[in-house]
Nucleic acid binder design. Structure first.
Lengths: 138, 138
DNA sequence: CCAAAAATCACCCGAAAGTATGAATGAAGT
DNA sequence: ACTTCATTCATACTTTCGGGTGATTTTTGG
Protein backbone atom coordinates (compact mmCIF):
# COMPACT_ATOMS: atom_id res chain seq x y z
CA UNK A 1 0.00 0.00 0.00
CA UNK A 2 2.79 2.38 0.87
CA UNK A 3 4.54 1.48 -2.34
CA UNK A 4 1.36 2.21 -4.25
CA UNK A 5 1.06 5.64 -2.65
CA UNK A 6 4.68 6.34 -3.48
CA UNK A 7 4.11 5.41 -7.09
CA UNK A 8 1.05 7.57 -7.08
CA UNK A 9 3.05 10.52 -5.85
CA UNK A 10 5.85 9.88 -8.28
CA UNK A 11 3.36 9.71 -11.10
CA UNK A 12 1.90 13.00 -10.02
CA UNK A 13 5.36 14.53 -10.01
CA UNK A 14 6.06 13.13 -13.44
CA UNK A 15 2.92 14.69 -14.78
CA UNK A 16 4.00 18.12 -13.62
CA UNK A 17 7.52 17.51 -14.84
CA UNK A 18 6.42 16.45 -18.30
CA UNK A 19 3.92 19.25 -18.56
CA UNK A 20 6.68 21.64 -17.70
CA UNK A 21 9.21 20.23 -20.14
CA UNK A 22 6.80 20.03 -23.02
CA UNK A 23 6.11 23.70 -22.48
CA UNK A 24 2.41 23.49 -22.38
CA UNK A 25 2.85 25.84 -19.49
CA UNK A 26 5.56 27.92 -21.12
CA UNK A 27 3.62 31.08 -20.68
CA UNK A 28 3.08 30.51 -17.01
CA UNK A 29 5.44 32.94 -15.38
CA UNK A 30 4.94 32.08 -11.80
CA UNK A 31 6.11 28.85 -10.35
CA UNK A 32 3.43 28.61 -7.67
CA UNK A 33 0.89 27.69 -10.33
CA UNK A 34 2.37 24.24 -10.66
CA UNK A 35 2.36 23.72 -6.95
CA UNK A 36 -1.20 24.92 -6.88
CA UNK A 37 -2.18 22.44 -9.57
CA UNK A 38 -0.38 19.67 -7.73
CA UNK A 39 -2.25 20.52 -4.57
CA UNK A 40 -5.53 20.50 -6.46
CA UNK A 41 -4.70 17.10 -7.90
CA UNK A 42 -3.79 15.66 -4.51
CA UNK A 43 -6.83 17.12 -2.81
CA UNK A 44 -9.20 15.84 -5.45
CA UNK A 45 -7.44 12.51 -5.42
CA UNK A 46 -8.09 12.28 -1.70
CA UNK A 47 -11.66 13.37 -2.22
CA UNK A 48 -12.04 10.67 -4.86
CA UNK A 49 -10.67 7.99 -2.59
CA UNK A 50 -12.86 9.13 0.26
CA UNK A 51 -15.88 9.32 -2.00
CA UNK A 52 -15.14 5.95 -3.56
CA UNK A 53 -14.86 4.29 -0.17
CA UNK A 54 -18.04 5.88 1.08
CA UNK A 55 -19.90 4.70 -1.97
CA UNK A 56 -18.40 1.26 -1.58
CA UNK A 57 -19.62 1.05 1.99
CA UNK A 58 -23.10 1.89 0.84
CA UNK A 59 -23.03 -0.97 -1.60
CA UNK A 60 -21.71 -3.34 1.02
CA UNK A 61 -24.30 -2.42 3.58
CA UNK A 62 -27.00 -2.74 0.99
CA UNK A 63 -28.21 -6.15 2.01
CA UNK A 64 -30.94 -7.97 0.21
CA UNK A 65 -34.03 -6.81 1.97
CA UNK A 66 -37.23 -8.25 0.70
CA UNK A 67 -40.58 -6.79 1.43
CA UNK A 68 -42.71 -8.66 3.92
CA UNK A 69 -45.66 -10.02 2.00
CA UNK A 70 -48.24 -12.36 3.40
CA UNK A 71 -47.26 -15.96 3.13
CA UNK A 72 -50.79 -17.13 2.56
CA UNK A 73 -51.50 -14.55 -0.10
CA UNK A 74 -48.63 -15.58 -2.28
CA UNK A 75 -50.80 -18.11 -4.06
CA UNK A 76 -48.22 -20.87 -4.09
CA UNK A 77 -49.82 -24.15 -5.02
CA UNK A 78 -49.11 -27.51 -3.40
CA UNK A 79 -47.04 -28.71 -6.29
CA UNK A 80 -45.05 -25.53 -6.42
CA UNK A 81 -44.47 -25.85 -2.71
CA UNK A 82 -43.14 -29.36 -3.21
CA UNK A 83 -40.76 -28.10 -5.84
CA UNK A 84 -39.70 -25.24 -3.62
CA UNK A 85 -38.81 -27.62 -0.81
CA UNK A 86 -36.63 -29.66 -3.14
CA UNK A 87 -35.04 -26.52 -4.53
CA UNK A 88 -34.27 -25.60 -0.95
CA UNK A 89 -32.40 -28.86 -0.50
CA UNK A 90 -30.01 -28.05 -3.30
CA UNK A 91 -31.39 -30.34 -5.98
CA UNK A 92 -31.11 -29.44 -9.63
CA UNK A 93 -34.13 -29.14 -11.87
CA UNK A 94 -33.44 -32.53 -13.42
CA UNK A 95 -33.08 -34.19 -10.02
CA UNK A 96 -36.36 -32.67 -8.89
CA UNK A 97 -38.01 -33.80 -12.10
CA UNK A 98 -36.83 -37.37 -11.51
CA UNK A 99 -38.05 -37.40 -7.93
CA UNK A 100 -41.49 -36.08 -8.83
CA UNK A 101 -41.71 -38.20 -12.00
CA UNK A 102 -42.33 -35.25 -14.28
CA UNK A 103 -40.28 -33.64 -17.02
CA UNK A 104 -37.55 -31.11 -16.65
CA UNK A 105 -39.67 -28.51 -18.42
CA UNK A 106 -42.41 -28.90 -15.89
CA UNK A 107 -40.02 -28.13 -13.07
CA UNK A 108 -38.81 -25.09 -14.93
CA UNK A 109 -42.38 -23.88 -15.23
CA UNK A 110 -42.94 -24.40 -11.52
CA UNK A 111 -39.75 -22.61 -10.56
CA UNK A 112 -40.56 -19.72 -12.87
CA UNK A 113 -43.92 -19.25 -11.24
CA UNK A 114 -42.30 -19.57 -7.83
CA UNK A 115 -39.83 -16.85 -8.66
CA UNK A 116 -42.65 -14.62 -9.78
CA UNK A 117 -44.68 -15.17 -6.67
CA UNK A 118 -41.70 -14.85 -4.38
CA UNK A 119 -40.54 -11.81 -6.34
CA UNK A 120 -37.01 -13.14 -6.80
CA UNK A 121 -34.74 -13.74 -9.74
CA UNK A 122 -33.21 -17.15 -9.10
CA UNK A 123 -33.34 -20.24 -6.92
CA UNK A 124 -30.87 -19.07 -4.30
CA UNK A 125 -32.86 -15.93 -3.65
CA UNK A 126 -36.00 -18.04 -3.58
CA UNK A 127 -34.58 -20.10 -0.73
CA UNK A 128 -33.59 -17.03 1.23
CA UNK A 129 -36.94 -15.40 0.64
CA UNK A 130 -38.86 -18.50 1.62
CA UNK A 131 -36.98 -18.79 4.88
CA UNK A 132 -37.33 -15.11 5.53
CA UNK A 133 -41.10 -15.14 5.29
CA UNK A 134 -41.26 -18.18 7.52
CA UNK A 135 -41.87 -20.97 5.07
CA UNK A 136 -40.68 -24.35 6.26
CA UNK A 137 -38.84 -25.56 3.23
CA UNK A 138 -36.49 -27.92 5.00
CA UNK B 1 0.74 -2.51 -10.27
CA UNK B 2 2.12 -2.36 -13.76
CA UNK B 3 -1.37 -1.99 -15.07
CA UNK B 4 -2.01 0.82 -12.61
CA UNK B 5 1.03 2.70 -13.87
CA UNK B 6 -0.08 2.08 -17.42
CA UNK B 7 -3.48 3.51 -16.64
CA UNK B 8 -1.80 6.55 -15.15
CA UNK B 9 0.26 6.93 -18.28
CA UNK B 10 -2.75 6.61 -20.52
CA UNK B 11 -4.58 9.13 -18.40
CA UNK B 12 -1.68 11.50 -18.72
CA UNK B 13 -1.72 11.07 -22.45
CA UNK B 14 -5.40 11.82 -22.53
CA UNK B 15 -4.84 14.95 -20.51
CA UNK B 16 -2.24 16.19 -22.98
CA UNK B 17 -4.41 15.23 -25.91
CA UNK B 18 -7.39 17.09 -24.57
CA UNK B 19 -5.30 20.08 -23.68
CA UNK B 20 -3.69 20.08 -27.10
CA UNK B 21 -6.99 19.86 -28.92
CA UNK B 22 -8.63 22.67 -27.04
CA UNK B 23 -5.62 24.91 -26.99
CA UNK B 24 -6.31 26.06 -30.52
CA UNK B 25 -9.55 27.54 -29.45
CA UNK B 26 -8.38 31.08 -28.94
CA UNK B 27 -10.80 31.86 -26.19
CA UNK B 28 -9.31 29.13 -24.11
CA UNK B 29 -6.12 31.10 -23.70
CA UNK B 30 -7.80 33.57 -21.46
CA UNK B 31 -9.10 30.92 -19.11
CA UNK B 32 -6.58 28.21 -19.78
CA UNK B 33 -5.38 27.83 -16.22
CA UNK B 34 -8.86 27.51 -14.82
CA UNK B 35 -9.82 24.88 -17.37
CA UNK B 36 -6.58 23.06 -16.91
CA UNK B 37 -6.98 22.94 -13.16
CA UNK B 38 -10.55 21.83 -13.55
CA UNK B 39 -9.54 18.99 -15.83
CA UNK B 40 -6.82 17.90 -13.46
CA UNK B 41 -9.26 17.99 -10.57
CA UNK B 42 -11.90 15.98 -12.39
CA UNK B 43 -9.49 13.37 -13.68
CA UNK B 44 -7.80 12.87 -10.36
CA UNK B 45 -11.16 12.75 -8.67
CA UNK B 46 -12.14 9.95 -10.99
CA UNK B 47 -8.85 8.20 -10.46
CA UNK B 48 -9.32 8.50 -6.72
CA UNK B 49 -12.80 7.05 -6.86
CA UNK B 50 -11.63 4.16 -8.99
CA UNK B 51 -8.56 3.59 -6.86
CA UNK B 52 -10.36 3.92 -3.56
CA UNK B 53 -13.10 1.50 -4.48
CA UNK B 54 -10.71 -1.03 -5.91
CA UNK B 55 -8.47 -1.06 -2.89
CA UNK B 56 -11.21 -0.74 -0.34
CA UNK B 57 -11.87 -4.38 0.33
CA UNK B 58 -8.22 -5.35 0.33
CA UNK B 59 -7.48 -2.82 3.01
CA UNK B 60 -10.38 -3.91 5.11
CA UNK B 61 -9.77 -7.61 4.78
CA UNK B 62 -6.21 -7.12 5.96
CA UNK B 63 -7.38 -5.61 9.20
CA UNK B 64 -10.46 -7.67 9.89
CA UNK B 65 -9.89 -10.73 12.01
CA UNK B 66 -12.03 -13.61 10.98
CA UNK B 67 -13.25 -15.63 13.91
CA UNK B 68 -15.21 -18.22 12.03
CA UNK B 69 -14.34 -21.70 13.27
CA UNK B 70 -14.52 -23.90 10.25
CA UNK B 71 -13.48 -21.72 7.42
CA UNK B 72 -9.80 -21.89 8.21
CA UNK B 73 -9.74 -25.65 8.46
CA UNK B 74 -11.13 -26.05 4.99
CA UNK B 75 -8.46 -23.83 3.54
CA UNK B 76 -10.89 -21.14 2.49
CA UNK B 77 -9.11 -17.82 2.04
CA UNK B 78 -10.43 -14.46 3.16
CA UNK B 79 -11.37 -13.44 -0.35
CA UNK B 80 -13.14 -16.71 -0.98
CA UNK B 81 -14.99 -16.23 2.27
CA UNK B 82 -16.08 -12.79 1.15
CA UNK B 83 -17.38 -14.25 -2.07
CA UNK B 84 -19.13 -17.01 -0.18
CA UNK B 85 -20.96 -14.51 1.96
CA UNK B 86 -22.22 -12.69 -1.12
CA UNK B 87 -23.19 -15.98 -2.74
CA UNK B 88 -25.14 -16.68 0.42
CA UNK B 89 -27.06 -13.48 -0.10
CA UNK B 90 -28.29 -14.63 -3.49
CA UNK B 91 -26.15 -12.43 -5.69
CA UNK B 92 -25.12 -13.60 -9.14
CA UNK B 93 -21.47 -13.85 -10.13
CA UNK B 94 -21.67 -10.61 -12.05
CA UNK B 95 -23.25 -8.76 -9.14
CA UNK B 96 -20.55 -10.03 -6.82
CA UNK B 97 -17.92 -9.01 -9.34
CA UNK B 98 -19.32 -5.50 -9.46
CA UNK B 99 -19.44 -5.17 -5.71
CA UNK B 100 -15.90 -6.44 -5.22
CA UNK B 101 -14.66 -4.51 -8.26
CA UNK B 102 -13.13 -7.51 -9.94
CA UNK B 103 -14.03 -9.36 -13.11
CA UNK B 104 -16.67 -11.99 -13.53
CA UNK B 105 -13.99 -14.58 -14.28
CA UNK B 106 -12.33 -13.93 -10.96
CA UNK B 107 -15.54 -14.62 -9.10
CA UNK B 108 -15.97 -17.81 -11.07
CA UNK B 109 -12.51 -18.91 -10.01
CA UNK B 110 -13.33 -18.17 -6.38
CA UNK B 111 -16.62 -20.00 -6.49
CA UNK B 112 -15.03 -22.99 -8.20
CA UNK B 113 -12.43 -23.29 -5.45
CA UNK B 114 -15.15 -22.81 -2.87
CA UNK B 115 -17.19 -25.65 -4.33
CA UNK B 116 -14.12 -27.87 -4.25
CA UNK B 117 -13.30 -27.06 -0.66
CA UNK B 118 -16.89 -27.36 0.47
CA UNK B 119 -17.28 -30.52 -1.57
CA UNK B 120 -20.45 -29.35 -3.30
CA UNK B 121 -21.57 -29.01 -6.88
CA UNK B 122 -23.24 -25.63 -7.05
CA UNK B 123 -23.86 -22.41 -5.20
CA UNK B 124 -27.11 -23.54 -3.64
CA UNK B 125 -25.47 -26.53 -2.02
CA UNK B 126 -22.57 -24.33 -0.99
CA UNK B 127 -24.92 -22.15 1.04
CA UNK B 128 -26.49 -25.14 2.73
CA UNK B 129 -23.13 -26.73 3.45
CA UNK B 130 -21.70 -23.51 4.83
CA UNK B 131 -24.59 -23.12 7.22
CA UNK B 132 -24.43 -26.78 8.12
CA UNK B 133 -20.83 -26.59 9.27
CA UNK B 134 -21.54 -23.47 11.22
CA UNK B 135 -20.12 -20.77 9.00
CA UNK B 136 -21.61 -17.36 9.48
CA UNK B 137 -22.25 -16.40 5.92
CA UNK B 138 -25.02 -13.93 6.60
C1' DC C 1 15.46 -11.37 -1.30
C1' DC C 2 12.94 -15.53 -2.51
C1' DA C 3 9.49 -19.10 -2.50
C1' DA C 4 4.74 -20.05 -1.62
C1' DA C 5 0.21 -18.70 -1.37
C1' DA C 6 -3.37 -15.79 -2.73
C1' DA C 7 -5.69 -13.02 -5.99
C1' DT C 8 -6.54 -11.69 -10.43
C1' DC C 9 -8.02 -12.50 -15.34
C1' DA C 10 -8.63 -14.80 -19.75
C1' DC C 11 -10.46 -18.28 -23.05
C1' DC C 12 -13.14 -22.19 -24.29
C1' DC C 13 -16.78 -25.33 -23.73
C1' DG C 14 -20.83 -27.74 -22.20
C1' DA C 15 -24.41 -27.96 -18.86
C1' DA C 16 -27.82 -25.86 -16.25
C1' DA C 17 -30.90 -22.30 -15.39
C1' DG C 18 -34.21 -19.10 -16.64
C1' DT C 19 -37.63 -16.55 -20.02
C1' DA C 20 -41.34 -16.44 -23.20
C1' DT C 21 -45.01 -18.51 -25.40
C1' DG C 22 -48.38 -21.73 -26.31
C1' DA C 23 -51.15 -25.59 -25.36
C1' DA C 24 -53.44 -30.00 -23.63
C1' DT C 25 -55.49 -32.18 -19.70
C1' DG C 26 -58.22 -32.73 -15.70
C1' DA C 27 -60.06 -31.47 -11.33
C1' DA C 28 -62.91 -28.26 -8.73
C1' DG C 29 -66.42 -25.23 -7.98
C1' DT C 30 -70.47 -22.02 -9.03
C1' DA D 1 -72.21 -26.86 -18.94
C1' DC D 2 -68.98 -23.44 -18.04
C1' DT D 3 -65.20 -21.23 -15.99
C1' DT D 4 -61.21 -21.26 -13.42
C1' DC D 5 -57.04 -22.98 -12.13
C1' DA D 6 -53.47 -26.38 -11.36
C1' DT D 7 -50.59 -29.43 -13.63
C1' DT D 8 -48.27 -31.01 -17.26
C1' DC D 9 -45.26 -30.57 -21.40
C1' DA D 10 -43.15 -28.58 -25.48
C1' DT D 11 -40.14 -25.47 -28.38
C1' DA D 12 -37.08 -21.89 -28.86
C1' DC D 13 -34.13 -18.76 -27.00
C1' DT D 14 -30.88 -16.19 -23.87
C1' DT D 15 -28.33 -15.99 -19.82
C1' DT D 16 -25.79 -17.86 -16.18
C1' DC D 17 -23.08 -21.36 -14.11
C1' DG D 18 -19.40 -24.39 -13.66
C1' DG D 19 -15.23 -27.14 -15.27
C1' DG D 20 -10.81 -27.01 -17.20
C1' DT D 21 -6.63 -24.81 -18.29
C1' DG D 22 -3.10 -21.53 -18.12
C1' DA D 23 -1.26 -17.25 -17.03
C1' DT D 24 0.27 -12.92 -14.52
C1' DT D 25 0.39 -10.15 -10.56
C1' DT D 26 0.28 -9.28 -5.74
C1' DT D 27 0.84 -10.50 -1.07
C1' DT D 28 2.91 -12.96 2.55
C1' DG D 29 6.15 -15.30 5.33
C1' DG D 30 10.68 -17.00 6.31
Amino acid sequence: MLKTILIYGITLGLILLILNSIEYLFWVRFHFIEIYIGLVAIIFLGLGIWFGRKKQLKIESNNVTFAQPNYGQLGISKREYEVLKLVGKGFSNQEIADQLFVSNNTIKTHTSRLFEKLEVKNRTQAILKAKQIGMEIE
